[in-house]
Each structure stands twice: as structure tokens, then as C-alpha cells.
């Protein structure tokens, strides 16, 4: 059986598994014996990737089929400071898994999305997960957090997503909320308005925002950067999702 190497973002972990990405996503979201459920975001990593500080070889060695022949579902190699140690060249496809185990694979794009202007909302996913509003586009935001921090706060690598702001991007005070499901919208409006009136580029909306979020709120896709490079995994359009990934789309839109 093939062995796969997966980099999980929620929680941050490196895992070896005999399951294909689709099966691993379903297993990771809904479990096996237990009635568990939860969104998952993970990347498939080149199985040849090795790192001196990570016992990957040991993980592969332990990943053997069960006595009854069933594939081994997961061997956790490490659960701490993984993202910063995996070079982006080893990252293949990123997978978004819904809470009931539907899996959507997003290959990386060569180009970053165009900045359409207005204010931005970022959900950091890994290694920490605050909710941030910013005047900066994704590339500038990533630079500020990872490459050229303007304050003492920085991370060596980051996974984040840009979230939809709808009318609030241009009109924080009076724009229509529409289908934005964010809690405490008055606070979000105030934070966005502060970006207009104060000389700051970012403002924290929520220190401990859950790393899981409704996928329908993704604006363009998911970003992954480690100081050397920024990868972008674009989410297909709503039309394409409905037409080609209907089961995932329906589950993501619950």
C-alpha cells in the first residue's frame, strides 16, 4: 500500500497514512469508531521529504497495515512547529474537508489573486489563529507578518485565508451584511472603521477565533508562506463548485 505524508493545519501536525487524500480527509473529519466530526485543512507533502529534526523515517516504518489487512490510517510524526520546517517545494495539493468528510483538493496557483481594493479580513489558520482586518492585500499582509514585521510580533511561517467582507470592504459603517455569518458584526464594523481613521495597517478582531470557518466565506482561497515563498491555493468559483464539486459545495454550504 502507498504511504502518504500529510501536513495538517488544524491541528498543526505531520502525519503518515496509508489512506488516499480523499479517504484520509473523510477519516480525519468523521473518525472511525467514534462519532466525531470537524473540519480539516491539510496538504499532501512529497513522501520523499525528510528533515533532521522530524522523525519522518520512523513514522513511515511504523505505518504498517492492521492485522486484518486494513490500511493504517494515521501515524503522527510530530504535532508542534511543523509548518515552518516543511519547505513549500515539498507541498503538493491543499485539501479542504467539510465537517461530514467531503474533500476538495486545491492545487497551488502560479499567480496570486489581484487585489480588488478596499479593506481585507484574514483568518489565520496555522500556527496561531486570530481574526485580523487589514488595509493590506494578501502579499503585503504576509510580508508584514512573516518577512518584514513592523513590530515584535512575527511567525516563521503562516497559513491564512482571506475572507469575504462584501459591502463592508468599502463601507464598513453602513454596508449591508448580506450573507456574512460572522459573529459580533458591530465589533467587526468598528475594527474596519478604525483602519480608516487610525494610522494602522492591521487590527485584531478576535484573538482566539476558531481556526475552522464556513468555507463559503473564503474570498479567493488559502495562502501558505514560510519566509521564502508564498503559495496560493485558489478556491474555484461558486459556479464551478456547484457544477463539478456539488457534494462538497452542498456540505460546505450547510
Amino acid at each position: 500500500m502507498d504511504k502518504h505524508l500529510y501536513l495538517s493545519m488544524i491541528p498543526e501536525a505531520l502525519i503518515v497514512s496509508m489512506l488516499s487524500p480523499e479517504d484520509f480527509g473523510a477519516y480525519y473529519a468523521v473518525g472511525t469508531e467514534k462519532k466525531s466530526r470537524g473540519q480539516a485543512i491539510f496538504c499532501e507533502v512529497d513522501p520523499n521529504f525528510r528533515h533532521d529534526e522530524l522523525p519522518i523515517e520512523e513514522g513511515f516504518r511504523r505505518c504498517v497495515p492492521h492485522e486484518n489487512g486494513d490500511p493504517k490510517r494515521s501515524i503522527y510524526i510530530t504535532i508542534y512547529r511543523v509548518l515552518e520546517r516543511v519547505p513549500l517545494e515539498a507541498i503538493r495539493t491543499l485539501y479542504l474537508v467539510t465537517q461530514d468528510g467531503r474533500v476538495l483538493g486545491l492545487p497551488p496557483s502560479d499567480t496570486l489573486p489581484q487585489d480588488t481594493g478596499g479593506l481585507h479580513l484574514y483568518q489565520e489558520i496555522c500556527p496561531i489563529h486570530p481574526l485580523i482586518v487589514s488595509t493590506l492585500g494578501p502579499q503585503e499582509f504576509y510580508d508584514l507578518i512573516v518577512k518584514t514585521p513592523a513590530s515584535l510580533l512575527t511567525v516563521p511561517a503562516i497559513c491564512f485565508a482571506e475572507m469575504r467582507l462584501g459591502e463592508l470592504a468599502d463601507n464598513p459603517e453602513y454596508g449591508s451584511v448580506g450573507d456574512l455569518p460572522y459573529p459580533n458584526l458591530d465589533h467587526l464594523r468598528e475594527c474596519l472603521a478604525d483602519l480608516r481613521t487610525k494610522t494602522v495597517h492591521t487590527k485584531m478582531v478576535d484573538r482566539i477565533s476558531p481556526a475552522t470557518f464556513p468555507y463559503r466565506t473564503l474570498k479567493s482561497g488559502v495562502f501558505l508562506g514560510n519566509g521564502q515563498k508564498l503559495l496560493f491555493f485558489p478556491l474555484p468559483s461558486q459556479e464551478e463548485l456547484r457544477a463539478r464539486h456539488y457534494r462538497w459545495w452542498r456540505s460546505a454550504n450547510m
Binding site: V177, G178, D179, L180, P181, Y182, P183, L185, P214, R216, N253, M254
Partner: peptide, 12 residues
């Protein structure tokens, strides 16, 4: 159908 926060919101 996409009003007052849509699916997943507190209103929903």
C-alpha cells in the same frame, strides 16, 4: 438565501 448573515450565522 443570503440575508442577515446567511447559513452558519447567529441569525441562522
Amino acid at each position: 438565501s443570503g440575508n442577515f448573515g446567511g447559513k452558519g450565522s447567529e441569525a441562522h
